[in-house]
Each structure stands twice: as C-alpha cells, then as structure tokens.
Write a protein that binds this DNA or RNA. Structure first.
Lengths: 231, 231
DNA sequence: GTCTATAAACTGATAGAC
DNA sequence: GTCTATCAGTTTATAGAC
C-alpha cells in the first residue's frame, strides 16, 4: 500500500511522542504536547490512540529498532575484536542530548511499567550480548588476560557510555563523555598489551629452551616507560 | 534558635520535594504532590515558596550536601589509593533506585536550568576531583602505568557508577550495576599488577647487573596463566 | 503562620457533524 | 478519518478569616 511522502497522522503522533520522550521523558510529556507537535486534531488523536500509553509503547519500540542496528553493526564484520570495541566506544555520539533509550530508565513511568521497560531491557541486553561475544573472541585469542570476565567488561562498556552522558550533561561539556570512553579504552589497551608482552616473554622462553642457550631479555621490554600501543 | 524534634513546615516541603525529585524527577513532579506529601496546607505552601523552582533548588542543594561527604570520606584517610578506589566502587548502593543527584541530569527542567544544574555539576566535579587526586597518588607511586590519565580514569569511575544504575534499572537486576563496577576494578587490578610486574623485572635486572651474574627469569612470571590478584 | 473557601485556568476525554 | 464544540474533573493560585 502506497503511503506517499507524507507521514500518516498515526506516524506523526508516534514521531512526536518519540521526540518528546527523548527530550523530556515519558512522565513529563503530556498528551497535549504530543497533539500539538504532531499537528493532529484533538478528536483525531483519540481516534488513533486512547491515552498516552499506546503511542508511548509504539514510540519506544521504534526508537529501539532504529538505534540497535547502528550499534550492532560496529561490533561485527571485518577486523579484529580490538578494532570493534574501539569503533564502538569511539562512535560519535551527541553527548549533551543523552541516549534515546537509556534516558528512559530514569523515567518513573517507564521504569515502573514492565511493558514499557521491556524494549529498553531488550535493547541493552542485545548490545551487551554483542559486546560479550566480541570480548570473548579476544579472550580466546589470548589478547586479554583471563582474570577479566567478558560479561563484566561488556557491562562496563555499556555503563561507561550511559554514565558518560550523565557526566557530560552535568558539566554541560561533551569532553567528559569522551574522557570516560577514552578511559576504558586506555585500560583495555593496557590489559591487551600486557597479554601481548607476556606472550612475547613466553615465546622467547620457549625459543631459549629449544635453542639450548640463554637469550638476553629484550631491554626495550624492561625499560618500557609509558605503554605505547600500536595503531 | 531551638527548632524541636519536629521538622518545620518549610523543611517538610523541602524534604517532600527532595524525595519526589529522586523518585520522579523535577519535571514530572507537580506542586500538588509536594503539598500532599509534606502535609502542609495549600495556603501555607504558597506562604513559604512561590512555585516549584525555589523548593526544588533548596532540595537539590540539600541532596548534594547530604551525599557528598559519604563519597569523599571513602577517598581519603588511612590506607592506599588502591584500597580507596576499591572501597568507593564497592560501596553498597541501591542499584534499582538510582542516584539522587545523577538522575536529575536526565530531567529536562533541571538540565536546561543553569541554576538547578549548578549544584549537580559541582557535586560531580568534587567527586571527580577526589578520584583524580587518589589516582594521581597511585601514578606517582608507580602503581599504575603512565599511559593512563588520572582525569580520564576518574571520569570512567564516575561514569561506571552512573551508567551501572541505567543498566540495572533497564534489566531490573542489581547484578548489572555490580558487574560494571567489578569490571572497572578488574581492569584497574590488571593495570596495577602490570606495573608491579614490570617493576619486579626492573629490580631483578638491576640486581643482575650489579651482581654481575645472570639471574634466571622467574618461572612463575613466565608461566603466568590467569592473573591472580592479591586480597 | 496556618487554615478554608473560592476563583481562574487548563487538561483530558467524548459526542456528533462532515 | 478528521474536525468543532463541549463537558467534567483537576490544578494552580489567591483572598481573607483566624
């Protein structure tokens, strides 16, 4: 069925609700505001939706569906685990506007309504799942120390982004968002370089044993100052 | 001036506003709710405060003043930097209720009002400052690799907590909050053990040179499997 | 300082013509 | 499906007695 270029009134209502939930949350959004933004008549609104709940659920599901693919596609395809999580944590995000989905966890009417919370919970679970898979690959490849737990590091990555928004908005400075993300990247770089260095030591030791002679430990390892990481 | 055990009506209004801002945020809180909770009469409320803004500012300033000391005192006193940040990140927090202060960054009326946002920004800046000082001490003592930046790791710690709330509420499971906090602790443990191990290598090398003889590299270092950290 | 009464405004929701 | 008109219920805010 051809719907033309114009959005249908129903879509306009959902779009208005979606925008308002991002800007103001659910509890702070009144049906009147939704109606005004959607430029839909008073009577028409009640023809399409009865109350605030149904359009809110539709808006939420659309927001999650819109946002998820962009996040998930960064965490797969060509490349290495390290490149994936770097891309994910370095992704350009509008720090002062916050997360369309995450913000709603702070809304009393969403958090207390299992139906509204479900798509939010699902979106976060999927992102965390993808991050966990990526990290597990890095562990299997020996690129991260086994003392780290993929699930916990995945939770940390998601939390860093969500908490980064909080810090940035509080300070009205996007730099804090990027500081937090950089911070976790730097820690992961240390952890993965650690593993690489240990592996290097192991290889040398094996080599040394096989060749039956002593190999001087590489001075550049022992003098290592700040950890400098490859590109 | 003696005020007795009972809170004054003005205090009751501020307390009610404070509780409601935590539970529902500012935008979603109506003057009527504040009046009902405070059990202050309609006329009395307008005698003490004109509108929602003044009691909100008072409530916010009180919340920040109540919350800050508890956080700051964990980050000083006897002990080591590592013990301080562990205590800070392991502190018992009600993950599903969220942060009294941080939640308000997601409120449109707080985020867009410089006067209301100021105490929030200040509280976060102070915590970040304390964390940065603690981390700087660890860097100075050589307990963390110099590739890490104290400010960024401090931002990461704050973000982890704030983001942990988001994940926990989304999943309605406090475990996710603790996962995120544990995740950053584990990464910091790796980073600090890394530094310790490098330092150990350096000491041995110095010793070796001074004694003019070769010292076999410690097998327990080279065979290190999962990093096991001290208590 | 506190209370009751009341005014003024607004909001959510419905009905019925087109 | 959309519009106008309208109603009922609430909410904010003020006035004035105590």
């Amino acid at each position: 069925m051809y719907s033309g270029v114009m959005e249908t009134p129903r879509d306009r209502l959902v779009t208005a609700m979606s925008d308002l939930m991002w800007e103001r949350g659910h509890a702070a959004t009144s049906p009147r505001e939704v109606r005004e933004r959607s430029t839909v008549g008073q009577g028409s609104m009640y023809h399409h939706f009865s109350g605030k709940h149904p359009p809110a659920l539709a808006a939420l599901e659309r927001n999650c569906a819109d946002l998820l693919p962009g996040s998930l596609e960064l965490l797969e395809g060509e490349g290495t685990p390290l490149a994936w999580w770097r891309a994910y944590l370095s992704r350009d995000r509008d720090a002062l506007r916050g997360c369309k989905v995450g913000r709603l966890t702070q809304d009393p009417e969403v958090a207390s309504d299992p139906e509204l919370l479900a798509p939010v919970a699902d979106a976060f679970a999927q992102v965390r799942g993808a991050l966990t898979r990526v990290l597990s690959q890095a562990f299997d490849a020996g690129e991260l120390p086994a003392s780290l737990c993929p699930e916990r590091v995945a939770a940390l990555m998601s939390a860093t982004i969500q908490g980064g928004y909080v810090l940035a908005i509080a300070a009205q400075d996007p730099a804090l968002f990027h500081d937090a993300c950089q911070g976790v990247l730097e820690l992961l770089d240390v952890a993965s370089s650690f593993r690489r260095r240990l592996a290097r030591l192991r290889r040398r030791r094996l080599l040394k044993e096989r060749m039956g002679r002593r190999l001087a430990t590489s001075p550049d390892l022992l003098n290592a100052g700040p950890l400098v990481l490859g590109p």
